[in-house]
C-alpha cells in the first residue's frame, strides 16, 4: 500500500473544529455534517478540517492526545515495554503530520510535539525490526500484530510478507522432497505463482 493510501484512510478520522462561518447542516453522501455556527465547536472528518483550515475558515482543536505531557507519557511506556503499546490514535502518525503541517498555529508547543512523535515512531520501528528479525530466524509463520498502526504495518510491507512467503515455499518443497506428498505439482506451482501484495 502507498503511504498516500494510508493517509487516505486516516483522513476519515473525525476531529473538532471551531468554524468561523455560519452554515446549515451539509448533507454529504457519507453522512450529515454540521450545522456550523461561528465559534461553536463541531465535528468534521479530518480531510474537511484541513480543507477549511487552508481556506482559513476554521481553527482546528487538536485531539486530546496531541499534547506534550500525554505523548511524553506514551513515549516512556513505549520505552519500558517490550511489546508494542496501544497508541492513542489508530493513525497517530498521519494525523500528527497533517494537523501539525497545516494548523501549526492552532497548537501549542508544536516543535516539542514533533520531536516526541518522531521519537515514538523511532522506538517502535526499532522494536518492529528486531521482532521481524526474530520471526525470520525462528521461521514462525504467524504473528500477533495487535497495537500496530496501519502506517507501521505498511512499513514492513512488502518485505516481511514476501520473505515469509519464500520461507513457506522452501518448507513445502523440502516436505515434497522428503517424500510426503505432491512433489512436482508444488514445484510447478511455486514457479508460476504471482505475488499480489504491494
Amino acid at each position: 500500500m502507498d503511504p498516500d493510501e494510508v493517509e487516505f484512510w486516516a483522513e476519515k478520522t473525525p476531529i473538532q473544529i471551531i468554524p468561523s462561518f455560519n452554515s446549515q447542516t451539509m448533507f454529504l453522501i457519507g453522512g450529515d455534517i454540521g450545522p456550523f455556527r461561528a465559534s461553536i465547536p463541531t465535528r468534521v472528518p479530518l480531510w474537511m478540517a484541513i480543507h477549511l483550515k487552508k481556506q482559513q475558515q476554521c481553527k482546528i482543536i487538536p485531539p486530546d492526545w496531541l499534547d506534550v505531557e500525554i505523548l511524553t507519557n506514551v513515549k516512556e511506556q513505549e520505552k519500558d515495554n517490550k511489546s508494542f503499546v496501544k497508541m492513542p490514535s489508530e493513525h497517530y502518525m498521519v494525523e500528527a503530520k497533517l494537523i501539525l503541517g497545516n494548523a501549526a498555529d492552532d497548537i501549542p508547543r508544536v516543535d516539542e510535539i514533533r520531536t516526541i512523535i518522531k521519537d515514538i515512531w523511532d522506538i517502535r520501528m526499532s522494536k518492529l525490526r528486531s521482532s521481524m528479525d526474530l520471526m525470520i530466524k525462528n521461521s514462525s509463520m504467524y504473528a500477533a500484530v495487535d497495537n500496530l498502526t496501519l502506517m507501521e504495518m505498511n512499513s514492513i510491507r512488502p518485505i516481511l510478507p514476501n520473505a515469509l512467503d519464500q520461507i513457506y515455499r522452501m518448507k513445502t518443497i523440502k516436505r515434497g522432497l522428503t517424500g510426503r506428498t505432491q512433489g512436482t505439482s508444488i514445484l510447478s506451482h511455486s514457479k508460476s505463482t504471482v505475488s499480489f501484495n504491494s
Binding site: M141, Y168, M170, H189
Partner: peptide, 26 residues
Amino acid sequence: SPNVNSMIILKSKKNIEGITVDDGNA
C-alpha cells in the same frame, strides 16, 4: 495462479477459535 499461501495481515471482527495455521510443515 495466485500464491494463496501469501502472508497477509488481518483484523478480526469477532471472537474466533481454533484457526489452523498452515506453517509449511506437515
